[in-house]
Structures are given as structure tokens and as C-alpha cells.
Write a protein that binds this DNA or RNA. Structure first.
Length: 575
RNA sequence: CGGGGCGUAGCGCAGCCUGGUAGCGCACACGCUUGGGGUGCGUGUGGUCAGCGGUUCAAAUCCGCUCGCCCCGACCA
């Protein structure tokens, strides 16, 4: 490819609307432009990267025994009504009517469509199992799209769905996909980590996310420094601590009420009373999907994990109650709430169990209790794991291990789905005994376009992108210092053709630009290997070869250049 | 949806407070110059000042409404 014939609109300055590095660089280096919020044009270079990622994903999915198909991007409301998600999904699901006033939506994911497909085709256990996947544009009307390709509304995704006669076989495929995903992300050249994940709105009971490690990641993850336990903090378990031992003979200091005028938050009261946050018990009032108000108690220095609270309460949804609801129920504004004398169902985090000398709200304005003794002063209806895991927590799986915290970009997730969709849509098969049974399902996603951003978040420097060679738009950039110079042009053109003949993916910067401009663009666009052809080198019969990643360079005789480069590329791509 | 910010040439920005001929840098075109890290000089092209409405002799500037975009929060396979 010739640079002069390729649309690569590079920019000298960062775009004003970009925040994260991958977004800035993708726009600056001429890969993408925004069309509307969360919706982008993919320019030729970006499409090349996407195609390369897709190719690796296809190869590995096919190798794992999955089959590619393609489903429609729009689907009729009826399928979504059958699964119940037409109501549940909310505004994220973009809906529209056709000319006959029939309801449709754009697919944010395809469980319904594929389950419908399968129920119309599969009759017998003999036809199972199989795994179907597609690579396709999805649309989700995200509340807040952001960070360029990291969280778009329209994005490219590989989604796979597997179908099985029984749970064991589904588990086998889950493991198969787990290993496949590890191969895929390794081949892409990314540092990643599989972590245990919450199953979210999609349902199911077993799930892993594949997280590309990056500071700018939206997800917080923790992992053990001793064993291989790793989890999204949404999911990460916190080991129940042993309640502190106590001397029965020892008399409890007496509960005491103190004035805390105007001090509401833990931080404010802690400063006012000169006590550490860990001595506090936070009382948070939540509203359940059953419209019940419930109090959740966690230690002052901990954050509540609403998913765990849901599990502990056995409900599908919880939301912090608004002030009005709290006031109506307790005659108080939040800030002075406490468990003592509170007339609500209370659940407490394990860490609250047996706390002594604690501080809580006094359930009256401008006052708190100190010297609270949990065992003596109040009894929650249950103790449970309610808080977010943090760095430093003991590992829930091994003894000496301690959790460390990272940030990650979720680029893949695998789920065991069970029979949620097959039962809702009636996707069944006849087993060997002739009994009708719902099909067991798994589902496996990879965010293709998000991977483009994730790769850059992990591979960049002050000058621009540094593509892993496996997904670089080109493997080699040929940079003639002055393409108008006949001698330079001749050597460049011959090398260009020789490399193409050897199967090297190459772009020739044949523009009539100053060398500085070309070097800057070369760094910005991030092609792994740069070959410079200039008058100085030609005099000695050499070209210069330079790696984008570490800046290491060497001089290569012109007549050996094509073979040397082809070999280097082959080695670097592991081919 | 709540809070904050922004919208002026292709890009990045000033001008707005205090109303009076729309500016700067980059990019672009042309000429000369230069040719191993965004050359230098000169000449030039390009603007419904987001849109609609209002105030005024006069609006990029003041007021109202609408739209778009960004950030934080709530939310999220």
C-alpha cells in the first residue's frame, strides 16, 4: 500500500473531545472519527486492525470446533417478549417500528435470536452439542458512551452460543472456550487476566471475564499474590473474619450519646470525634424490588457491594433509598441513622460482627452513639459478605495470600447460561429415553472494536501508538527520506516489491513531505518495523531498520534487506 | 436522569465580562527555499460565530428556548 493513496488524516494536536489515550491516538493517527456520540467511522487503517483481530478470533474459534454464522442485526419484538427482556432491558435496547407498525429492535446481544434458530432446527440429543458464533455490529444505547472505542453505542463483537444436552457437556465447552480465549488474547499480544465475574442481567451462574490490564480500565479487579484467584471486585468474595475474641468477664464500656452537630458523613464525624473510620458502622437504607426498605450495615472504611446485598436479601434489585423515603420510614435524614432502635430489617457485613467501641448514628438529628457494642446493643437479622473487596484483604481461596488491586478493560466474557433462554423460548430436545428436555446453553463474547482501544491503552508512548505486530495495520513501514530523489525512489520501490513478494504487509510512505513530518507520522501510526531509505545510507549501500517499540535500529545491506526483513517479520509474528 | 463545562475556518484556540468592520497558530493553495525528526520567507483561499426567537440604531458578544458534544455521578452483556 502506498501512503499517498491511503486515507490517513493525521492530526498534530489532540482532539478536544478525547479523554483517554487510545481515543486521542486513534483520532490523531487517522484511524477513526466520531459520527455521533459513541458511533464512529473506521478509516482504512482501523479496518485493517479490526480485520486482523477478527482473523485471529476466527481461526481460534474454528479450531475450537465452533461454527461461524451470521444473524440479523434487527429482530422482532416477539422474540424479546418471549424471553421477557422486551420489558426488562430498558432504554439500552433501541426499538423501532416498521411500516406496518410492528415492533423491532437492534440487537444488543443475540440469545433470543439464536435460541429461536436452534429451537426450529434441533430435535434430538444426537444433534447436540454445537457452538455457533458470529462477528457483527451490535447496538446498545448506553447511558453514557465514552472513551472512544472503549465504550461505544455501536461496536463490533464476536458472540458465540453453545448448546448441550447436559450440564457436564456445557461445562466442558466452557472450559474449551476458556482455553480458546487465553490463546486468542495471547496471540493478540496483550497482557490480560481471566477473572471470576458477576453474571449480570444476562443470568446464569458461572462466568469469567478476560481483562486487559490498563490503568484507564473501567473495571476494578483483585487477584491473589499467592494463588491464581482473581475476580472482578463486583464478584470478589471477602473471607468472613473470625469475630474478635472477647473476655466474657470484661464489662462493656457503656453506650454513650454524643452531639455531632451538622456532621453527617463518616469522614466528617470521624474527624470531629478524632476516631478512625474503621471504628464506624455505616447504616445505608436500600429499597428492594419488593419495595421494602432495608438497612445494610458496613464498617465505616468499607464500601458496600450492592450485588452482594442483593444476594444476601434474595432479591433481584436494590437501590439506595432516596431521602424522602428514608425520612418517611425513620423520621430522620440520612446521616444520623444507626442500628440501635432502628425499625427496619437489618443485614450486616461480617466485619461488623462483634464490633466494640464502635460509632453509629443515634437515630436522632445531630447525635451519634459511641462505645457501641454490637453483641450487646443490636442484633441484625443476618451477617453476610456485603462489602467490596479491597487490596490487602486476605485471599478467599488460600491461606497466606493477600489480594492486590488492578484496573482492567473487559474484552471478553464467558457465561454458563443454563436453561434460562431455552426454557423461555421452548428450545428442547429429546434425550435417549425419549424425554423432552431444555437445552443447556453457554455464551461467549469478545469485544472486537474495544480490543482495538485496549491494545493501544497497553501499547503507546509519548510519540504515538505501538502496535503489537499481530494486529498492526502493516508490519513494515518503508520510509524514503526524499521520494523525489531518483536513487532513493528506485531502491524504495524495489524493496517495496520484494517485500510484497515475500508476503510482508508493507506501506510505502511515498508522500512528498519533509522527513520530519514522515518520522512523526510513522511514530504516531505505530507500525512495528520502520525501514528508512536515505542518501546517507545509500552511499554506503545500507538502509536503516528500526523497531517502533524500543527504538533499536540496525543497518542492513540493500541487497540483503528484503530477506532480512521478511525473516524478522516471520520471527516476530511467530509464523 | 442529576451536576459541571463547551459549541467561533478542516484541527487547536482567542474575542464574549464592558454590543460597533471576525482574529491567531496549524492545515490548505501558489512561488521561492529546504531535504535524516512537524524547514524558512512571502502571497492567498476558506466563517450560516450550533440553530431558532427576543432586546437594541446595531448582537459572536446581552436574554430565552432548542440541538449537539465532553466530563463527573447514577446505570451497564
Amino acid at each position: 500500500m502506498r501512503w499517498s493513496k491511503t486515507l490517513i488524516p493525521t492530526l498534530k494536536e489532540d482532539p478536544a473531545d478525547a479523554e483517554v489515550i487510545s481515543h486521542k491516538l486513534l483520532v490523531r493517527a487517522g484511524f477513526i472519527r466520531q459520527v455521533s456520540r459513541g458511533i464512529y467511522d473506521y478509516f482504512p487503517l482501523a479496518l485493517k486492525v479490526i480485520r486482523k483481530i477478527e482473523a485471529i478470533v476466527r481461526e481460534e474459534m474454528d479450531r475450537a470446533g465452533a461454527q461461524e454464522l451470521l444473524m440479523p442485526i434487527s429482530s422482532p419484538a416477539e422474540l424479546w417478549q418471549e424471553s421477557g427482556r422486551w420489558e426488562v432491558y430498558g432504554k439500552e435496547l433501541v426499538r423501532f417500528k416498521d411500516r406496518h407498525e410492528r415492533d423491532f429492535c437492534l440487537g444488543p446481544t443475540h440469545e433470543e435470536i439464536i435460541t429461536d434458530l436452534v429451537r426450529r432446527v434441533v430435535r434430538s440429543y444426537r444433534e447436540l452439542p454445537f457452538n455457533l458464533y458470529q462477528i457483527q455490529t451490535k447496538f446498545r444505547d448506553e447511558v453514557r458512551p465514552r472513551f472512544g472505542l472503549m465504550r461505544g453505542r455501536e461496536f463490533i463483537m464476536k458472540d458465540a452460543y453453545s448448546f448441550h444436552a447436559d450440564l457436564d457437556d456445557c461445562r466442558r465447552e466452557y472450559e474449551n472456550m476458556f482455553q480458546t480465549y487465553k490463546r486468542i488474547f495471547s496471540r493478540l499480544g496483550l497482557k490480560f487476566r481471566p477473572v471470576e465475574a458477576d453474571t449480570g442481567a444476562i443470568g446464569g451462574s458461572l462466568s469469567h471475564e478476560f481483562q486487559v490490564l490498563a490503568e484507564s480500565g473501567e473495571d476494578a479487579i483483585v487477584s491473589c499474590n499467592k494463588c491464581n484467584y482473581a475476580a472482578n471486585v463486583q464478584k470478589a468474595e471477602v473471607k468472613a473474619p473470625r469475630p474478635p475474641a472477647r473476655d466474657i468477664a470484661e464489662a462493656s464500656p457503656k453506650l454513650e450519646k454524643v452531639a455531632t452537630p451538622g456532621k453527617k458523613s463518616v469522614a466528617e464525624v470521624a474527624e470531629f470525634l478524632r476516631l478512625p473510620a474503621a471504628k464506624f458502622i455505616k447504616t445505608l437504607v436500600y429499597k428492594t424490588d419488593g419495595d421494602e426498605l432495608v438497612a445494610a450495615l458496613v464498617r465505616g472504611d468499607h464500601e458496600i457491594n450492592e450485588l452482594k446485598l442483593q444476594t444476601a436479601l434474595g432479591c433481584r434489585e436494590v437501590a439506595l433509598a432516596d431521602e424522602a423515603a428514608v425520612t418517611t420510614a425513620t423520621r430522620l435524614v440520612p446521616g444520623y441513622l444507626g442500628p440501635i432502635g432502628l425499625k427496619l430489617r437489618m443485614v450486616a457485613d461480617f466485619s461488623v460482627q462483634g464490633m466494640r467501641g464502635a460509632v453509629t448514628g443515634a437515630n436522632e438529628a445531630n447525635a451519634h452513639f459511641i462505645q457501641v457494642d454490637q453483641e450487646h446493643d443490636f442484633t441484625p437479622s443476618a451477617f453476610a459478605d456485603l462489602r467490596l473487596a479491597v487490596a490487602g484483604d486476605p485471599c478467599p481461596r488460600c491461606e497466606p495470600g493477600v489480594l492486590e488491586a488492578y484496573r482492567g478493560i473487559e474484552v471478553g466474557q464467558i457465561f454458563y447460561l443454563g436453561t434460562k433462554y431455552s426454557e423461555a423460548l421452548g428450545a428442547t430436545y429429546l434425550d435417549a429415553e425419549g424425554r423432552e428436555r431444555p437445552i443447556e446453553m453457554g455464551c461467549y463474547g469478545i469485544g472486537i472494536s474495544r480490543l482495538v482501544a485496549a491494545a493501544i491503552e497497553q501499547n503507546n508512548d509519548a510519540n504515538g501508538i505501538i502496535w503489537p505486530i499481530a494486529i498492526a495495520p502493516f508490519q513494515v513501514l518503508l520510509l524514503p527520506i526524499n521520494y523525489k530523489d531518483k536513487a532513493i525512489q528506485k531502491v524504495s520501490d524495489e524493496l517495496y516489491q520484494a517485500l510484497q513478494k515475500r508476503g510482508v504487509e508493507i506501506i510505502l510512505d511515498d508522500r512528498d513531505e519533509r522527513p520530519g513530518v514522515k518520522f512523526k507520522d510513522a511514530d504516531l501510526v505505530g507500525i512495528p518495523l520502520r525501514v528508512t531509505v536515505g542518501a546517507k545510507g545509500l552511499e554506503k549501500g545500507f538502509i536503516e531498520l528500526r523497531w517502533r517499540r524500543d527504538g533499536k535500529s540496525e543497518e542492513v545491506p540493500i541487497d540483503k534487506a528484503a530477506d532480512t526483513l521478511a525473516t524478522l517479520v516471520r520471527e516476530a509474528t511467530g509464523a
